[in-house]
Computed example of a mutant assay.
Amino acid sequence: MIKKISMVKLLINLPFLLILASNLLSLHMIHGQTQDSCGSNSILGNLSGQIFFDTSSLNCFPVWSSENFVLRYAQAGPSLWSFVLSAPNSNSYVGMGFSPDGAMVGSSAVVGWVASDGSANMRKYFLGGQTPSQVLVDQGDLQIIGNTSSVISDSSRIYMAFQLAIDQPRRQLVYSVGDNSNLPPNTPSFRLTKHRTQMAISLNYASAQGSRIKAPYSNLKRAHGILNMIGWGILIPTGAIVARYLKHLDPLWFYAHTGIQSLGFILGFSGVIAGLVLEDRLDANVNKHKGLGITILAFGCLQVLALLARPTIDAKTRKYWNWYHYSVGRLMILFAIVNIFYGIHLAKAGSSWNAGYGVVLGILFTTVLILEIKLLKKK
Results as ranks from 00 to 15, higher is better:
57 S>H: 15
213 I>E: 02
151 V>R: 07
210 G>I: 07
58 L>E: 05
159 Y>R: 02
286 V>R: 12
234 I>H: 00
120 A>Y: 03
270 S>F: 10
146 G>A: 14
38 C>M: 09
124 K>G: 03
179 D>V: 08
349 A>S: 12
303 Q>D: 06
160 M>T: 13
70 V>I: 13
359 V>N: 00
115 A>F: 10
342 Y>D: 12
364 L>G: 03
148 T>Y: 08
194 K>V: 14
8 V>T: 13
231 G>N: 07
174 V>Y: 00
358 G>N: 06
153 S>Y: 10
280 D>P: 02
119 S>D: 07
201 I>M: 13
129 G>W: 02
32 G>V: 03
10 L>W: 13
227 L>Q: 04
75 Q>F: 10
255 Y>A: 01
365 F>I: 08
297 L>T: 14
336 A>Y: 04
289 H>S: 03
186 N>P: 01
347 A>R: 01
20 L>H: 05
53 F>W: 11
264 G>R: 06
361 L>C: 10
307 L>H: 06
358 G>T: 01
18 L>A: 10
208 A>H: 03
44 L>N: 03
330 R>Q: 09
47 L>M: 11
269 F>K: 00
57 S>R: 15
310 R>F: 05
97 G>R: 07
132 P>G: 06
50 Q>V: 01
335 F>E: 08
166 I>P: 04
58 L>A: 02
373 I>P: 00
146 G>V: 12
97 G>Q: 05
282 L>K: 12
25 L>F: 15
293 G>S: 13
284 A>G: 02
65 S>I: 09
207 S>T: 15
134 Q>I: 04
11 L>M: 15
192 L>C: 04
70 V>M: 02
148 T>D: 09
219 N>Q: 11
186 N>F: 11
57 S>Y: 14
49 G>T: 11
118 G>F: 05
68 N>Q: 09
159 Y>F: 15
144 I>Y: 04
308 L>V: 13
102 G>A: 06
278 L>P: 05
158 I>F: 01
258 T>G: 02
289 H>P: 06
315 A>S: 15
126 F>S: 12
149 S>I: 00
3 K>D: 12
164 L>Q: 04
158 I>Q: 08
319 K>I: 10
202 S>K: 13
350 G>V: 08
31 H>G: 12
150 S>G: 03
251 P>V: 00
248 H>V: 07
95 G>M: 13
185 P>G: 05
260 I>Y: 01
318 R>V: 11
204 N>P: 04
211 S>E: 11
6 S>T: 10
322 N>W: 09
6 S>I: 14
